[in-house]
Design a protein around this nucleic acid. Structure first.
Length: 642
RNA sequence: GCUGAUGUAGCUCAGCGGUAGAGCACUUCCUUGGUAAGGAAGAGGUCACGGGUUCAAGUCCCGUCAUCAGCUCCA
């Protein structure tokens, strides 16, 4: 048979050669590191014989599919360990996930797992891995499989899964003492699993259904090399250090208190400075690009949301309506209906279009209590929202303009590396969406064309669209490689219809505009959380709440220090001063801990020479400068947003 | 909303039936020191909240609230 490799070259092998044999024929090292193969695009066991011509790729742990095989096998290994430690345990599903794997299990009566039990399970896993057990695949007739799980083993979960697999090929995978119903693929052997870290225990409903049994889910991750596990642990610690909830407290940025309510953050003075800096920047940039700012109230008549269609679609995630003088009002869950009213305020001409209305609009959504988390999931948040009303002909250019401003914002906040673009389209289930199918398809086409013309590197996902139209979402990576979905652009032919938006065209006839909803950063609260974690609290000069700290060495320089503070403040910089009778070391330590970008240290020498000794955060002492030199540097940092 | 864990000083945490503790922060005093924490004294708590068990409850039990890890949901 002829085997084609990813680089295009081919080689002859006898029939029933395994992936491992092929790997060996290339190099021993590859064979040692291989975990499976991709056979004509399908993941295959290394030990499974191949027949017929095929294109193959040998998978190692470095491949996405390789990791999946490795972690899936690790889930089986963990299951075996659990089975030995807790006889009578039943198993649900145990898949590989983005990082690692989990297994949902039903423990025998009276047994509860906590994180304290994890080390024992890890130890058992390592012990079992060393037994060098082979994973053996076995195809079993459905009737035999159901008999095995339902009658012999008595695992109703596996039996239920099997009910859904009627007519498909059923395979079991066995290694050592453990057998699982599993499609595969798997490692050849347990011995490749070398380093194990079990992460957490949590409850999870069987098949994600809250009316069904709660199972115990155990999360873990495994690696073939110690370095990988070490890196993984370092990464987790780094993420923990950057946690915006922790830094928000340490840097006095925001607070959340049950006295006000969960998910309702209060911005402290330092956090407010940051928000205002960011908002002012956005405001200025949008006005420059032809947007008009508007302000609308936090509540609105319920009829607005009945007209928009939001009310029936999403009533469960809105705060309940309140009745005042026989009218019902709602906390606004989005800004669009208010903006549509501004559009309707007077007759519109084609000469006014595109009309771009933006608002830093605070909206309220009822998130379930268990879903609230820091600033990333809240019940009241501010969107950097805008609605662009334009003609069908203008649509594509407007979409492009929006994409441009979104990229500009990302760049300004240092997140422009590897931005991913997702086009979210409708799927088959027509009842999820409002509006005319024709218009949808048209909008999807326009979006795709705009993306193509901009040379965006996008992928399409069906079923992710908003109920009123398709959208473009942007996913950015932060400083430590975590992905966050930020900006969104949504094309909407439905709302203009529902609100009866019109403009008079050059032909003196009434026409229907298209509406683009867009929010480059989404929620300001969430974005600030991302920003805090992205910069680990070490904000660039232009954003930092306190930009410069003036630190006199002793009382003798207090007056000189105050004059420096005054001069910088007059120029608009954010400055504080430490006049306490503490040693300079102490003052520096605290300035650094609060992550202030610059400390200007002034002692007798500096006072006599009219200079300052400069310390830059994370860099340390950068020498003595005149105040004028520093003002030039600070001005540059501010104006260039660095 | 569901499951589990957690809730003790502003922060980080110890105490786990017998009169509330530490470090840091805070206040006052001493110290005026040159690039990451000088010294001393002081103040600060309905031990989340509400019930219960007990001679006695941060400590054991039940409920509520909040936070965290998940699940579910997400315009």
């Amino acid at each position: 048979m002829k085997i084609t490799f990813p680089d295009g070259h081919t080689r002859e092998y006898p029939d029933n050669t395994t992936g491992l044999d092929i790997a060996k024929s290339i190099s021993e090292g590859l064979a040692r590191n291989s975990v499976g193969i991709l056979l004509n695009g399908e993941v295959y066991d290394l030990m499974r014989p191949i027949s017929g011509d095929a294109t193959i790729k040998i998978l190692t742990f470095d491949d996405e599919e390789g990791k999946e095989i490795y972690w899936h096998s690790s889930a089986h290994l963990m299951a075996e360990a659990l089975q030995q430690l807790y006889p009578g345990i039943k198993f649900g599903i145990g898949p590989a996930i983005e990082t690692g794997f989990y297994y949902d299990v039903d423990l025998p009566d009276g047994i509860k797992l906590t994180t304290e039990d994890l080390p024992a399970i890890e130890a058992k896993m390592l012990e079992l891995a060393k037994k060098n057990s082979e994973f053996v695949r076995e195809v079993v007739p459905w009737e035999e499989a159901i008999k095995h799980w339902r009658d012999e083993v008595g695992d109703e979960y596996k039996a239920e899964l099997l009910e859904g697999f009627k007519g498909e090929e059923i395979s079991f995978y066995r290694h050592n003492t453990f057998t699982d119903l599993c499609r595969g693929a798997h490692l050849p052997n347990t011995s490749s699993i070398k380093f194990v870290k079990l992460l957490s225990v949590a409850g999870a409903y069987w098949r994600g259904d809250s009316s069904r049994n709660m199972m115990t889910r155990i999360y873990g991750v495994t690696f073939p090399k110690k370095k990988m596990l070490d890196d993984f642990i370092v990464m987790r610690e780094e993420a923990e250090k950057r946690d915006h909830r922790k830094l928000g407290r340490e840097l006095d940025l925001f607070m959340i208190t049950p006295a006000v309510g969960g998910g309702l953050p209060l911005w402290l003075p330092n956090g407010t400075i940051m928000r205002r800096v960011i908002e002012d920047f956005m405001r200025k940039e949008q006005i420059k690009r032809g947007y008009f700012e508007v302000i609308t109230p936090h509540i609105g008549n319920i009829n607005l949301y009945k007209t928009s269609g939001h009310y029936p679609y999403y009533s469960s995630s809105q705060f309940p309506p309140m009745t005042v003088e026989n009218e019902e009002y709602m906390m606004k869950p989005m800004n669009c209906p208010h903006h549509h009213q501004i559009y309707l305020n007077k007759p519109r001409s084609y000469r006014e279009l595109p009309l771009r209305l933006f608002e830093l609009g605070t909206v309220y959504r009822y998130e379930q209590s268990g879903e609230l988390s820091g600033l990333t999931r809240v019940r009241g948040f501010t969107q950097d929202d805008a609605h662009i009303y334009c003609t069908v002909e203008q649509l594509k250019d407007e979409v492009k303009g929006v994409v441009d401003i979104i990229h500009y914002f990302f760049k300004t906040f240092g997140m422009s590396d590897s931005v991913q673009t997702r086009l979210s389209f409708r799927d088959e289930s027509a009842d999820k969406y409002g509006g005319d199918v024709e218009l949808w398809l048209k909008a999807q086409k326009e979006i795709t064309e705009a993306a193509d013309e901009l040379g965006l590197n996008y992928f399409i996902e069906e079923g992710e669209a908003a109920f009123y139209g398709p959208k473009i979402d942007f996913i950015v990576k932060d400083a430590i490689g975590r992905k966050w979905q930020l900006g969104t652009v949504q094309v909407d032919y439905v709302m203009p219809e529902r609100f009866n938006l019109e403009y008079t065209g050059a032909d003196n006839m009434a026409h229907r505009p298209v509406c683009i909803h867009r929010a480059p950063l989404g929620s300001l609260e969430r974005f600030m959380a991302i920003l805090i974690e992205h910069y680990a609290g070490n904000f660039p000069f232009w954003i930092a709440p306190i930009q410069v700290s003036v630190l006199p060495i002793s009382d003798g320089q207090a007056e000189y220090a105050l004059s420096i503070k005054q001069e910088l403040e007059n120029l608009g910089f954010r400055v504080d001063i430490d006049l306490r009778s503490e040693k300079i070391n102490r003052k520096i330590a605290e300035s650094e801990q609060k992550k202030k970008p610059f400390a200007l240290i002034v002692g007798q020498k500096e006072m006599e020479n009219k200079t300052v000794s400069v310390r830059e955060h994370t860099k340390g002492d950068i020498g003595v400068k005149t105040l004028e030199e520093m003002i030039a540097i600070f001005t540059d940092l501010n104006t260039n947003r660095k």
